[in-house]
């Protein structure tokens, strides 16, 4: 009896740990951002007001609360620049995720069908780029994509183009950068589900008269949907808020929400509007997250 109690306590602590983590590193910062988004910008330190001062007494605190307003959110809704930034972010994320799925699925499928000892090698090859700093890899792409860069040299040498193509500061360059950077996040979950799938199921489908494309659409793809869901969300959510890649590779004529946030925070020093934009982004991303949550729960229930 007492022996069980000794073991029960650490187990309970371990169960609480993720919640403590969530409260400390997500909920509390979220509270700060939410509060700032309801404040007004000010030329002060910090650059917004009101500031909650717990030592100033009850009346001052009530006054500070009363000063909070939804003005920043109204501004976001009324100014096209923000709406465009959100729409552009979502468009880029949807397009890039679709491209990632198209590129990542065949790679993951090929990996899952390799002989076991080669699968480990392929896995290392997918992960190896992470050993180099992300920024350096993006700068490497700038190098490859510039006017006299490697890509144009190859295209010219193969006589595919007669003039160097302008790649930098275009959406193409941005999509190349995004697909390149996020590919492992698409491949790994896809690979995990495809490797788990028994190849005999594909044989059974083909035995029952399904030509190869039907085997894929009726058996392989439906059974890999959990991996597709995980890969799509792992890519889609961070791409919506992506800042570095569009900033370095895309043109400056249309901004994604991440770039807009950066401008508000660091150039305009408008913390409240930037916070409001961040809150709206979070709410927008909550939708696919909840969808994914439900998908996973349904699979867990099915798995039983």
């Amino acid at each position: 009896m007492s022996g069980r109690r000794i073991f029960a306590r650490p187990a309970r602590l371990a169960a609480i740990a993720p919640y403590v983590w969530m409260v400390l590193f997500f909920l509390v910062p979220f509270g700060f951002v939410l509060k700032i988004s309801l404040s007004q910008t000010a030329i002060a330190q910090p650059p917004y007001e009101p500031v909650f001062d717990l030592t100033a007494g009850w009346e001052a605190l009530r006054a500070a609360f009363a000063a909070l307003s939804l003005d920043n959110f109204r501004l976001l809704a009324s100014d096209d620049i923000y709406v465009f930034a959100y729409v552009r972010s979502l468009t880029v994320a949807v397009t890039a995720t679709a491209l990632l799925l198209l590129v990542g699925y065949p790679i993951a499928y090929g990996m899952a069908r390799l002989p076991t000892r080669w699968q480990a090698v392929a896995m290392v090859l997918v992960i190896v780029p992470f050993w180099t700093s992300f920024l350096i890899r993006i700068y490497a792409w700038i190098n490859i994509l510039q006017h006299d860069g490697l890509l144009n040299q190859i295209l010219l040498a193969l006589h595919l183009v007669s003039q160097p193509v302008v790649w930098l500061s275009t959406d193409s360059a941005m999509y190349i950068g995004i697909v390149y950077s996020y590919l492992p996040f698409m491949i790994l979950p896809l690979y995990a589900t495809l490797a788990k799938m028994e190849p005999v199921l594909e044989e059974a489908a083909s035995d029952l008269g399904a030509p190869p494309w039907q085997v894929f659409w009726l058996v392989t793809f439906p059974l890999s949907l959990p991996g597709v869901g995980a890969g799509v969300l792992l890519c889609f959510i961070p791409i919506v808020g992506e800042f570095v890649i569009p900033d370095l590779l895309a043109g400056s004529n249309s901004l994604m929400i991440g770039q807009t946030l950066w401008l508000e925070f660091f150039t305009n020093k408008d913390w409240p509007v930037a916070s409001a934009a961040a809150i709206v982004l979070l709410v927008v991303l909550l939708v696919p997250l909840l969808l994914y949550e439900r998908l996973q729960r349904r699979q867990l229930e099915q798995g039983r």
Binding site: V200, L201, A204
Partner: peptide, 10 residues
């Protein structure tokens, strides 16, 4: 047609 070992049901 074939009946598979462990059945290979979808």
């Amino acid at each position: 047609n074939m009946m598979f070992q462990n059945y290979a049901l979808f």
